[in-house]
């Protein structure tokens, strides 16, 4: 098993490198809208489009050969010198460090709430399969998944922000992090995100729990007269916990991946989602690579930890030969 873990870790490094290279290559071949805009302006006001292009490339260091630029970027990535963000005029590390807390502050409560609620609804609906309350619970979970996030967000804003005035319309980044004001303005985004993510957790836990609902030992427990709560916690939750744990480990690591661009846009939260999206739009190469690295790293590590957790937690799985 140790050999398996080592191989997985090595592979995670290689995968990260591959993804960064591909990202870099794609950015290199894509025309830059800012450069074109500048050329067009120059031509429209009687200047020379070529000169404008040269000036732009000189400023962004694009006048060197692709191979030199690629080497430089990759070296910088490794040495944690992630470069200068052209579209924000600040070091990439600083940009990411500034955005990360805003993502965390809504995604941590979102993740915790959706795991708790999702588990509860999933277990409930597994033990009460095909009853009216099962339908109601399932419907509630699916409701959140099916309603488009962005649309739901705007409607909530209109009703509770503009009409009723209960919550502020625009996210105010000036409010201290752990304050009532911050909690208040996070209510709507968290509600939108939790309703959206509950369905996934609920589906998993329901499926896992269902495996044991019909199991012989549960039936035995039932016939012995164990009450519903005891059956649920002792006989269903316990065996189901192993596979659930592995999913949750991935989920918790994925907290930062939960950065939802749509929700950040609708509520105006300056988090990682907006950061990476705007970086792509502006073709800010250093920033795109920096944010891609963060996302890639988290999901590669998330996969890794999930797989390793699975081998550790579930003795039935044998990775000896793979």
């Amino acid at each position: 098993m140790r050999w398996y873990v080592v191989r997985r870790v090595l592979w995670a490094v290689v995968a990260t490198f591959l993804i960064l290279s591909v990202t870099w290559g794609l950015l290199a071949v894509t025309p830059n809208p800012a450069a074109e805009q500048m050329q067009f302006q120059a031509a429209a006001s009687g200047g020379s489009a070529e000169a404008a292009e040269e000036a732009f490339e000189a400023r962004r260091g694009l006048d060197r050969s692709p191979w030199v630029r690629y080497q430089e970027y990759m070296t910088n990535m490794v040495t944690l010198n992630w470069g200068w963000s052209q579209s924000r005029s600040q070091p990439v590390i600083e940009a990411i460090a500034a955005a990360l807390p805003y993502t965390a502050i809504y995604s941590v409560p979102t993740t915790i709430l959706s795991i708790l609620l999702g588990l509860a609804i999933g277990l409930y609906s597994a033990t009460n399969q095909y009853t009216k309350s099962d339908y109601a619970a399932t419907f509630f979970a699916f409701f959140g998944y099916a309603i488009p996030n962005f649309w739901f967000g705007i409607i909530l804003l209109l009703v509770f922000g503009v009409q009723l005035g209960w919550f502020p319309v625009v996210f105010d980044s000036d409010i201290p992090f752990f304050s009532l004001g911050m909690a208040r303005q996070l209510v709507l985004p968290v509600v939108v995100l939790v309703t959206g993510t509950i369905a996934g957790v609920m589906r998993y836990s329901r499926a896992e729990a269902l495996e044991y609902v019909e199991a012989e030992f549960v039936k035995t427990a039932k016939s012995k007269g164990a009450d519903g709560y005891r059956i649920l916690t002792r006989h269903i939750l316990r065996p189901a916990a192993v596979p659930l744990m592995t999913i949750l480990v991935g989920d918790i690591l994925g907290i930062f991946l939960a950065a939802s661009y749509l929700v950040e846009v609708v509520f105006g939260i300056p988090g990682l989602g907006q950061l990476s999206y705007n970086a792509i739009l502006a073709q800010d190469t250093s920033l795109v690579l920096g944010t891609t690295l963060i996302f890639t790293f988290v999901s590669v590590v998330g996969n890794l930890v999930q797989d390793v957790a699975y081998t550790v937690l579930d003795p039935r799985i044998d990775y000896g030969d793979r």
Partner: peptide, 15 residues
């Protein structure tokens, strides 16, 4: 598949 699953398709679409 590992690489592809991690690579953001959204990013590819944008470019």
């Amino acid at each position: 598949v590992d690489v592809q699953l991690v690579f953001p398709a959204f990013f590819l679409y944008l470019l």
